[in-house]
Amino acid sequence: MKKLSAIAIGLTLALSGCSTMTPARYSVSVDNNLILKKYAGQTTRIISMDPPANYDSNCRLMGPIQASDGMTIPQFVQKAFNDELKFASIYSENGNSIAGALTKIQFSSASGLTSGWWDLGLTLKASNGKTISVENRYDFKSGFDAITACNQTAQALAPAVQDLIKKAISDPAFAELLQ
């Protein structure tokens, strides 16, 4: 009987390991598209996106938050930015090259008990030597229990990235990156 109990406890522990929370795929923003349309005739692309020095992807005791389609968060941001450029018809493999670096990736799934936030920082450097840096905090409702809160945190990544991109392309210095 003790052996059966030990096996049951062992199986329970093995099956209750951590989960990976993954957001939905990125979808382009109408607001970002309207901003990018003013750059019609110019072409660019994001050629790289470096990760920050440190990023803790663990959400409570549930497990890590990862981007969709097996991408890292920097790859997710790079693809999102290029998707926005494509949707605005200013993306080109032959256009001006912009290298990106995420300077900050932080999140909380338990701010004020049932709220959360993503803090994202981004530096963009164009092939012409011009650089801009932006940071953005995206607040959202997370939830009380860990499963809900961590899933909500993962789902909030895409709109957090939309807002980060909007902050970058709304910066007056963004136009200088495209010259």
Rank of each mutant, 00 (worst) to 15 (best):
K104I: 12
A101D: 06
L4M: 08
Y138F: 14
A6Y: 09
W117N: 13
P172C: 02
P159M: 00
A110W: 08
V77H: 15
P64S: 13
Q106F: 11
Y26E: 04
S108A: 05
K38L: 00
F87S: 15
F76T: 12
S29M: 05
T153R: 08
L4E: 09
D163N: 15
A110G: 04
Y39N: 12
M71S: 10
S27C: 03
G116Y: 12
S16V: 13
S108W: 03
I47F: 03
C150A: 07
K3V: 11
L164R: 01
N82S: 02
F87K: 15
T153Q: 04
I165T: 09
N94R: 08
L85E: 14
P51K: 15
C150Y: 05
S92Y: 03
S108F: 04
S97Y: 00
V134D: 00
A67Q: 06
A14C: 13
A126F: 01
S5A: 13
T20M: 06
S111I: 07
I65W: 00
D56Q: 08
D119P: 01
Q152R: 08
G70A: 03
A53G: 14
E176L: 12
F144A: 06
S97R: 04
G143I: 09
P51S: 15
C59F: 06
N136F: 05
D56F: 03
S68K: 10
L124F: 07
S127V: 01
N82A: 00
L15N: 13
T148H: 10
A149F: 09
C150K: 06
L120E: 02
I169A: 02
N54M: 06
S27W: 03
L85D: 12
A156E: 05
A8W: 04
K3H: 12
Q106R: 14
D50L: 14
T148A: 06
A40I: 03
P159E: 02
K37P: 01
G95V: 04
K38Y: 03
I9M: 09
T72W: 01
G121K: 03
K125V: 15
F107A: 05
N32E: 04
I105T: 12
K167F: 00
N136M: 01
A88Y: 07
P51R: 15
